[in-house]
Amino acid sequence: MLAKPVLSLEDIRLTIDGKHILNGCDLKIPEGEVVVILGPSGSGKSTLMRCINLLQKPDSGRILFDGEDILNSSAAAPAVRRKIGMVFQGYDLFEHMTVWDNLLLAPRLTGGAYAHGMSERAAELLDGIGLLEHAGRYPHQLSGGQQQRVAIVRALVMQPRVMLFDEPTSALDPEATEQLQKLFGSAALKSMAKVVVTHDIGFARRVADRIVFIENGSVIANLSAQHFFSGDVPDRLHRFLTKTMPELKLQYSEELPSRV
């Protein structure tokens, strides 16, 4: 039972310098769900995510956002990106600005509905992640986890429909990872569609509604998280998954010790 997709990618293909990065990927992001893209390094999962907000332009395929093809339409890339928030692996806060200015730069420059009520929105969100008192700090004065939460809020101030997370837990300690998980379930993010690229199986298991497994630029599996982590997958897929991502073995063994 799938909710109506807010985003759907159809047959996305990309070749860079003769190397096939994406070989016809299909992906649907249902409203309000967390879709986790898993896969080994170099499988193309990050590239696929960058295609979603047009930071990377695929050679062919369609990307439908609310039913509209954003890849082949005349809509300008900035207008599309305003509806799709992204949090980078390195957080990438603007180093020369305070936290507060980081949050307000985009709505201020964009204007219109984006600027309307931006200060209140930013303050509320910042308060929500417990960093209101840090509004005057510069990025280098914050911990990694704090920077990440500010980066999330920076995207949220633009009121996007979808949020993209690139390897969000790669540099976080267990405590910060737990805070991130909580944030996923908070009022600001809960109902929003989220796409998470990660190799962190544990995190995937805790937040995902749906798992998409990518290998060599192709979608190998697209299952509900419950199904995926049950280990009750076809034998060929099971062998493939445990071979390409040995970490999965542990997950499966917890679930089904008899299969080891």
Partner: peptide, 21 residues
């Protein structure tokens, strides 16, 4: 270069990214 990418991802025009970031 990530600073520029982060600006673009927020929906800023390339000119705004250059000017403000």
């Amino acid at each position: 270069p990530e600073q520029k990418t982060a600006g673009l991802a927020l929906g800023l025009s390339p000119l705004s990214v250059f000017r403000c970031i």
